[in-house]
Design a protein around this nucleic acid. Sequence first.
DNA 1: TCTTTTCTGAAACAAATGTTTCAGAAAATT
DNA 2: AATTTTCTGAAACATTTGTTTCAGAAAAGA
Lengths: 192, 192
Amino acid sequence: MARSVEFDEEQAIQKAMEVFWEKGYNGASLRDLTEAMQINSSSLYNTIGDKKELFLRSVQRYADDRRKDSKRRLESGKSAFDILIEYINDAVDVIIAKKNGCMAVKMAFEVGNTDKRVADVLKADSDFAFSFLRDLIKSAMKEGRISADEEPELLADYFNSTWTGWYESYILHKDGDKIRRMAQFFIKQISK
Amino acid sequence: MARSVEFDEEQAIQKAMEVFWEKGYNGASLRDLTEAMQINSSSLYNTIGDKKELFLRSVQRYADDRRKDSKRRLESGKSAFDILIEYINDAVDVIIAKKNGCMAVKMAFEVGNTDKRVADVLKADSDFAFSFLRDLIKSAMKEGRISADEEPELLADYFNSTWTGWYESYILHKDGDKIRRMAQFFIKQISK
DNA sequence: TCTTTTCTGAAACAAATGTTTCAGAAAATT
DNA sequence: AATTTTCTGAAACATTTGTTTCAGAAAAGA
C-alpha cells in the first residue's frame, strides 16, 4: 500500500481558521493560509479541497468549538441563572481580550449574503445558541431568577443578538468599560 | 486653459459606495468599481486616488448621509420620544428591506481592526449617533416618556449597539417578524 | 482659430491570486 | 527488500488584481 498523509488535518484547519478569523475570507490569500498551516498547496488540494472548502471547514470548526463550550457549561452543575450570567460575562471578556472578536459575527457580515453553504453553517450555529439560551432562560424562570413576563424564545433571540453590537462597539471605541456597563445593564434588566 | 473633468464625482462616489456596500472592501475589484462608476481607471486615479482613498470617500459619504438623516429627524418637530420610536422602526425597516443592511456595521467588522483611517470615520459616525441618541433620550426623559433611572449616556450606547445584532439575525434567519418582535420588546423596555 | 492644458480610453504593467502539474520522496504492504 | 501507491515540494499555470502609461480627444482661453 501507500504512504499516508503527513500533516495533522485538524491542526491545519485550526490554523486556517485563525487566518480567516483575522483577515476575513477575501482578505486571506492561499499563501497566507498554507504558510500558517505549514503545508503545501498541493497537499491542501489533495485532502481538504479548494479555498471555499477550507473556509467552510474552518467555520464549521468554529461552530463545533462553540457547541462543545456550551455543553461544558450545561454540565457545570451550576444553576441556570448562574450559567447565563457567566455566559454573558465570558462573552464580554472575549470581546475585550480577543483581538478579533467573534468569528461567526464577522463572517456573517462578510459572506452571509453571498455564500449559501457558509450561511447555513452560521445559521445552524445561531440556532444552536438559541436553543441553548432558551432552555437556560426557561430554567432560570423556574428558579425565579428571571421575570417570566416575556416568552423565553423572544428573550433568547434578544440575548443572542445583543453581543453582536458590543463587538462592534469595542472594535470602534476600544472601550472595555463601556462594554461592561452595557452588560451590567443588560443583566439588571433581565434579572428579577 | 484646459479641459475640465467630465464625470460627476459625487455621483461616481455614490456608485462606488454601492459596490463596496454589496461586496465589501476586499470583495470589490477595481474593475467592479470603475464599471459601476462608468469611468476609466485613469480618471479615477487622476481625481479621487487609489482604491483605499475611494473606499474612504465612500464610507465618508455614507456617514454624511446618516448625519443629514439625523438632522432631518430633529427638525421634524415631533416629540423626542416619537423621534426615537420612529428611528427604531425605520432601522427595522432598513434591516428588512435593504438587501445589504447597514454599511457602517459591515465595514466595521471587515476592516475596523486593520484600516485606521476608515476606523476613524466609523468611530466619528458612531460618536455622532451617540450624541444624537443621548440628547433625544434626555429630552424624552424630560417629557416623562422614558424612565430616568438610567443615565442617558448608557442608554444611548445601548441603543446604538442594539441594531447591530438585529442586522446579523436578519442576515442569517431572514425573519422579519423576529426583528419586529425584538424591536417591540426593546421599545417596551425603555418606555415608561 | 489656434494654442495650451488636461482629461479620457485602451492597453499594458508587474505583482498577486487561486489552482494544477509532476518528478521524486516516503511509507505501507508483500 | 522489493513493489506499489500516495503524498509532498517546488515550480508553473492562467487569471485577476491594483496601478500606470501614453497618444489622442476635448475643452477653455488667447
